[in-house]
Write a protein that binds this DNA or RNA. Sequence first.
RNA 1: GGAGAGGUUCCCGAGUGGCUAAAGGGGGCAGACUGUAAAUCUGUUGUCGGAAGACUACGGAGGUUCGAAACCUCCCCUCUCCA
Length: 402
Amino acid sequence: MMSDERTRHELDQLKSGIVDLYTEEELGKKLDRFHREGKPMVVKAGFDPTSSDIHLGHTVLMNKMRQFQDLGHRVAYVVGDATAMIGDPTGRNKTRKVLTRDEILDHAKTYATQAFKILDPQKTEMVFNSTWLFKLDFMKLIDLASKYNVARMLEREDFKNRFKSGDSISVHEFLYPLAQGYDSVALKADVELGGTDQIFNLLVGRKLQSDYGQEPQVVMTVPLLVGLDGVQKMSKSYGNYIGVTEPADGMFAKVMSISDDLMWNYYELLTTVPVDEIAAMKNGIQNDTIHPRDCKVNLALFITARFHGEPAAREAKENFYREIPSNLAEYPVTLPDGGLALLDLIVQIGFTESKAEARRMIQQGGTYIDAQKVSDVALKITSKDSFVLKVGKKKIGRVNFS
RNA sequence: GGAGAGGUUCCCGAGUGGCUAAAGGGGGCAGACUGUAAAUCUGUUGUCGGAAGACUACGGAGGUUCGAAACCUCCCCUCUCCA
């Protein structure tokens, strides 16, 4: 039958790059039904509005969502404004900033504009889970909570670990998976996508849906992108991320800073370069016909071009190899009558947090004025001539005096 | 409610009343090396100060003492066992 063939083809496409899939049969059935009845599936994915930046890690997931859209399905893009209030309590000593309503809306908005670099806005519905979660009264909440038990909750990796090592787990944290699962009930989701770290929550959704008499959603996870440090997952809070709105130069440079090993991971998850080409590159490096650096340059070009276009990517590459980039950040500074201590200047333009840190930078030989190493900690600037200031390997800019 | 163990700098973790801005590790940063990579090595890692030095820090508030992260009191928080 025709529909079978089509289903199989689509299934293969959707399965590529997926880590977990529960279950393939169900997904096949849903696809079949779509082909028969024409009713698009609701593909759900949730996003935490605690920060407003989308980074490359998110794009792995979004590419998959886009794939569903291209096959005619609809994406329910859930802004977790209600669940954000539960938050992630691992950093207990840090008082987590409670976001105001406005901040969340703000984040959601900038988030969306970034997301639509990848997603099809026509086929995306942005929904806030407070819409239904805030309507749950106490009785309904109890009912929801009764659908799951503690032993199973403790199966979740991070709960299990914290329980074992004797760390605190607040009761309300148990509500997080339930709330997220309830989102699926409220949306009657057909499919939910998430990173592999979400697997537990996604499966709770399946369970809850059948408890509420719905057909359980298909659950699919995509691999987590490792951050620039090569160890932890890419995340804003670890500061090891590349944001999709970052300037081309920075994006290029950041990709270049990853390790050679990590490069292959990025090739697989972030580019459309076919596997056999990737294998060929690895081979070339093995027998010394290709320099790994060149492979990384191509990777950086690919990623940068995706968000900034080809020409900008090429320019970023040139800048990367130039001693001093052509489009330096400019720092206008007012020069006081008595002159300005270099230390103060460094702090003033935000290159270091404190003067002590700036002093260290100079003492350790990481500070340059117009490519001239600065050795005098007490250096005072008296002339209004502008110069290029470099502090450490990353902070560089032109200082203009007035 | 009862018994016990704890809360130390970004994180983990040591700390005898003065020699402790506080060992050690991790992480970060800088330098060397290199491919403006990784790995490795070295240094550095509270603030102000050119420096000498000063100031602020060991859950919170008081107290003892010439002197407290360390001793006492109360409070807050976490964990374990019992109920």
